[in-house]
Each structure stands twice: as structure tokens, then as C-alpha cells.
């Protein structure tokens, strides 16, 4: 217990802010639409009208309540990214560990394939696939998950390789343990910590990526409200000095800042440096 409390007291302010932002966003993800005062398609005012009582964030380009739209958008934006990241880990982690344990041609083929996919910028690959298949929610999620799983694969393979050459893994092999035991008991428990941090970073990346695609008009398609698309729809407002597009953009920024602050705190303190007390 004391270990837990002393660790908690060691969390810096930035770490707390990060975790608070994540908590708020998870809450919005779960309950956002229930909290929204108006429907996401409901036209309740004048286009681009300024914030006013009852409509703290004003109205969008069609005269819909901005706050309600942002609350609805939480589910789409966060949901798609979460689904894509979970899927990419479900693909990348097992394959990465398998490649590390098995080695040989399987490792060679997978690694070469991953290297090639990674030698094309993700955005470009995504555009190529969206060009061929058109944009829909499943296509979006699967495409991003597959592209992203290359990075997860690489990390999982690297970490698993590091564990696999440890003496304790060798002991298990010399005991004749099967693949299932090796993965479940020897490798997975030890690769988990770095993968958790990676999950945060990949989520951040994916989240920005989905929002970016939507901003380009190639991501989430109407009628779903999502933050990236809302920025795009309201972008013109900025030229008239209106804040409308900034609200969804700020919502995006708060999610990524939250995750980044948390991951940054989790990863800090791992490095030691010479000469601090000289």
C-alpha cells in the first residue's frame, strides 16, 4: 500500500493533468450523446451564430448546436481510433511475438513485408487504399489498423526477441515447452509494459490520423459527427473571425495532449544520466 501511495505522490502535475484529460474524454466517449442538449442533426439556430445562453459554444455552419455536435463527435472520433488501435494490436502483437519466436522464413517474410509497407508514408498508403475502396467506417478502421499494425509488429518483435534470448527463455525451451507456454508465460508478461506505453502513443497517432483524414474529407462521412470533419465543415468561419472550427479542433487537441502527457510521465524516469551530481 505504501508503495502505491508513494508512487502516486511522485506523479508530477503534468501526469495528473494528462490522466484527468483521459478520464474526462473516456467519460465523454461513454456518455457524450446522453449529455448533449440537442440532437446532432437538429437545426436549432442561425448558422455560425455566436455563443449565447443555452448554446455555450454557439452554432455550426448549418445552425446546429456546437456543444451537442462536439459531444456526439466524441463517440465517433474516439471510438474509431480505439477500435483501430485495438485491432492493430490484435494483429501486430501475436504476429510480432510469433516472428520473434519462430524466426526463419516466417520472420523473414513478415519483416520484409512490414519494412516495405513502412517505407511508404502511412497517409499515402491510406489514401491509396481509400482511393480503391472508397471511405466507410469499416474500411477506415481496418485500413488504419493494418497500416498501424506494422509499427506494433516491429515493436512487439523487437521486445520479444530481447526476451527470447534471455537465459530464462532458453531454460524454458530446454524444458521442451511448447509455443503456447512460451508466449503466454515467458514472453507476454514481460513485453506488456513497453506495449502499454506504445498503445498510448499509437492511439494518439491514430486519433490524429483519423481526424486528419476526416478533415481532408476522406475519413468519417456524414451523417456521423466527428471532430475532424467538423473542423473541415466550419473552416470557412475562421475567415470571418469566428471560433466555430476551433472548438472541435481543441477537443482533438485535448485528447492527444492528455494521452501524450500521461505516456510522457510513464516513460520518464526510465533514463539514467551521468554527471547529475557532479
Amino acid at each position: 500500500m505504501t508503495a502505491v501511495t508513494s508512487r502516486l505522490s511522485a506523479v508530477p502535475l503534468t501526469g495528473w493533468i494528462g490522466m484527468a484529460l483521459i478520464a474526462i474524454n473516456l467519460f465523454l466517449f461513454a456518455f457524450g450523446p446522453m449529455l448533449a442538449p440537442y440532437g446532432q442533426e437538429e437545426i436549432v439556430g442561425v448558422p455560425f451564430d455566436a455563443p449565447q445562453p443555452g448554446h455555450p459554444l454557439g452554432f455550426d455552419q448549418n445552425g446546429r448546436d456546437m456543444l451537442s455536435r462536439v459531444l456526439y463527435g466524441a463517440q465517433t472520433s474516439i471510438g474509431i481510433s480505439l477500435a483501430a488501435v485495438c485491432l492493430s494490436f490484435a494483429i501486430g502483437v501475436p504476429l510480432g511475438i510469433l516472428a520473434a519466436l519462430r524466426g526463419g522464413w516466417l520472420d523473414l517474410v513478415l519483416s520484409r513485408l512490414v519494412d516495405t509497407v513502412m517505407s511508404i508514408p502511412v497517409l499515402i498508403s491510406a489514401l491509396v487504399v481509400l482511393q480503391a475502396l472508397g471511405s466507410s467506417l469499416p474500411v477506415l478502421i481496418v485500413t488504419i489498423a493494418c497500416l498501424d499494425s506494422t509499427r506494433v509488429f516491429r515493436l512487439a518483435r523487437l521486445v520479444a526477441q530481447g526476451i527470447n534470448v534471455m537465459d530464462y527463455a532458453e531454460v524454458a525451451r530446454l524444458r521442451g515447452e511448447g509455443l503456447a507456454w512460451m508466449i503466454r508465460r515467458e514472453i507476454l508478461p514481460n513485453v506488456l509494459p513497453p506495449l502499454v506505453a506504445e498503445f498510448g502513443m499509437r492511439f494518439c497517432f491514430t486519433f490524429l490520423f483519423v481526424a486528419g483524414l476526416s478533415f481532408l474529407g476522406l475519413g468519417v462521412q456524414p451523417p456521423f459527427a466527428d471532430w475532424g470533419g467538423m473542423v473541415r465543415d466550419n473552416q470557412q468561419g475562421i475567415l470571418y473571425g469566428l471560433y466555430a472550427p476551433l472548438f472541435p479542433a481543441a477537443a482533438i487537441a485535448l485528447v492527444t495532449i492528455g494521452v501524450n502527457l500521461t505516456v510522457d510521465w510513464m516513460l520518464s524516469g526510465r533514463t539514467t544520466v551521468q554527471g547529475d551530481n557532479r
Binding site: D167, V171, A172, P189, N190
Partner: peptide, 26 residues
Amino acid sequence: YRKRGKDLLRRIQLIYQLPDVALNPR
């Protein structure tokens, strides 16, 4: 060792130099 049966694997055991990495930390 892959071609050795369970009993052969049992009969020959190895102890390593660095106990730190010879034990699974989890």
C-alpha cells in the same frame, strides 16, 4: 535439443552465470 525427448531434456540441466537473467522476473 529440439530432437531430444522429454526424458533426455530432464536428465541434462544447465545453470547459468547470471542468475538475474536466468529467472523470469514475472
